[in-house]
Write a protein that binds this DNA or RNA. Structure first.
Lengths: 199, 199
DNA sequence: TCGGATTGTTGGTCGCGGTCCAAGTTTAGG
DNA sequence: CCTAAACTTGGACCGCGACCAACAATCCGA
């Protein structure tokens, strides 16, 4: 615990290494048809090692997104002022910070082949993650449990729909924050008061 | 192909049988700690047979809910008038028709032990089901894909939050439609215009 | 220079969910 | 009575994820 790296064997594998190998294989054969074992084969690493870096196969596609989720959670614990407004605001920086990484791959696969149930489930799991993070923040802000969960689900649904639409149109063609604004506007006046014209 | 049931062996092992056995075991040992094999053992049926009646272990808890989802989908294909209003309206009959069945068990388990990731995933899968059904209906009604998905997610989120809250307070103590109204009201003016004061 | 202590990697085993299939059993109907 | 349809069964199979005891590489202090 000195500063950066104490004693010990240096890491032979890395998340990035596994993600690259996985992306190649997913593009070649699709997500469902690729096993964790194959990924680790190509990465030149044992299967056991995989689970030192990821909890789940689907984390390979969503790791960038998941990072943003924990960052969002961290930002929301320090909630000041209107919790709902804060949630919307922080959701916007979520969108701004999320790069066109492997997340897009998840949905591009959905476009190519009829989205496997696995992918659908992995995506909606993230929706629940965001919903719970937001709901928890709203509850801390004094909202009732039911209202907090509903609002969280609505906002999370907007975020995920935005990410999906953004990925499908090909990231780069549009900016995620813009798509998110469009998604939020579909939520109607629920969120409008919090956004003084996003420009 | 005469009228209703052609020749053949009648279904001896009914869904109800499996559901009952499952409920017992879930109450005894919890959902995660109960395997499909155990359920079929108690039901006096082979494991293979289980998958003739259910696609997934979690279907045991959610079969009543799933029925309402297909009913909802059926009702929404015949969409007349404002699709969004119709969605809200049909969501209300969804809530009215959903009895306090095994659905409640899913969430009561969540209350007892710290909800397993399995349960959480099963629940959010239903959210996605409802979202997609609603979104599909809205798209058919002329809404854009993004807006349809967002609205669907918001409404589905409200429904699931309502079902959860209703189950946790113990069904019977409150009526699901009432809880749903409360959940919808958290969505704000998005849905208000469609409900001319429910009762 | 040597021996821990620490940190990662490996192979292996295990249980479970879910799929598939070929064979067997029960029923309706000609 | 025979056949064809509907259903059940056992078994094999695969992949995910958990777990664990051994092994390897590195750092650090004596």
């Amino acid at each position: 615990m000195t500063t950066t790296r104490g004693a010990g064997r240096p890491r032979a594998a890395s998340r990035a290494l596994l993600e690259e190998a996985a992306c190649e294989l997913f593009l070649e054969q699709g997500y469902a048809a690729t096993s964790v074992a194959e990924v680790t084969m190509r990465a030149g690493v044992s299967r056991s090692t995989f689970f030192n870096y990821f909890d789940t196969k689907s984390d390979l596609l969503w790791s960038a997104f998941d990072e943003q989720v924990v960052a969002l959670a961290a930002r929301l614990v320090a909630g000041n002022g209107d919790a709902a407004a804060a949630a919307v605001r922080e959701l916007r920086v979520f969108a701004a910070d999320l790069g066109p990484d492997s997340v897009a791959l998840a949905f591009s696969q959905e476009a190519a082949m009829g989205l496997g149930e696995d992918l659908r489930l992995a995506a909606v799991r993230r929706l629940a993650d965001v919903r719970d993070v937001v709901a928890s923040s709203l509850r801390a802000g004094g909202a009732g449990a039911l209202a907090a969960e509903v609002t969280g689900a609505a906002l999370a649904g907007a975020l995920l729909a935005a990410v999906r639409s953004w990925s499908l149109r090909g990231p780069g063609r549009v900016a995620l924050p813009d798509v998110l604004e469009e998604a939020l506007s579909a939520l109607g006046p629920l969120v409008r008061p919090a956004s003084p014209a996003p420009r």
